[in-house]
Amino acid sequence: MEHQIFNIQKFSIHDGPGIRTTVFFKGCPLNCIWCHNPESINAAREIMWDNQKCSHCGTCAAQCPAKSIAIEADRIKTDLNSCTGCETCTEYCLSSARAVVGKTYDYDTLYEALTADRIFYETSDGGVTFSGGEPLIHADYLIDLLKRLKAANIHITVDTSGYVPYEQFEKILPYVDLFMYDIKFGDSKKHHHYTGVYNDIIKENLYKLSQQPVTIWGRIPLIKPLNTTDEELNKILYILNQSAVKDVFLLPYHHISGHKYRKLGMPYLGESLETPDQAMLTAIQQKFIQSGYHTHIGG
């Protein structure tokens, strides 16, 4: 299995406590229509291409050592099977219209990248966050790395959709300090409709994980109008009430990722979705607070 990483974000301050470095893996079992990181869904390497910036000069194709790039009438086509991810094309792209999404790392390089900002973790009670995509599908790959980070006393957070076999959790559980666990819908059918999967496994895993001595934060993307009704929120609360979650983070949906879909050549189905307004956010926050949760707006 490929372990493609599409971003290592330093000074990440919204993916867990303190100042962190966040690793974004590619590959996700879900396919949420509102996904902010559509480049994270496909596990394989991809090319992002900005037709608004591209001057169609053809330099990328001419320079590509693997000859993977073809210039067609109104688009640039990259053969991902022969592409080696060497980034020569982006190096030669004067218009900065291309980006290679997905890189593989050896452990030493990754460990070095993740520990470069250690001093900031120490002063801010921060650490390293694994996100994605779904980082737990890479659990086997992660074990050795997590061991090393743990031995170095670095706080580890995993941001998960929960949709993996529970064994995946068990593999890395001893090394994780905090799970950020997404609850998107209480209603399983709706869950399936908008994310492509039912939520039974997600719920079961949450309950099992709740038996373990690890902190879990609930993260709820608020997608107006899909999951912002009282009925739907009550169902989400019902799930949370059976878990060990005490802190809830409400993440209001934003129309910010449309351009990424365009660059990836993917259809964007989130056009009709809305950002909850401040009044709605406050009301929902109150609702969660009344149910006994430390409730935060934002990451």
Partner: peptide
């Protein structure tokens, strides 16, 4: 230049104009 976008922060320059406007 770093700005807070939504659930994450990003370089302002990395954002599309529409998003910058927002």
């Amino acid at each position: 230049l770093i700005v807070r976008v939504a659930g994450y922060s990003d370089h302002f320059n990395n954002l599309e104009k529409a998003l910058q406007d927002e």
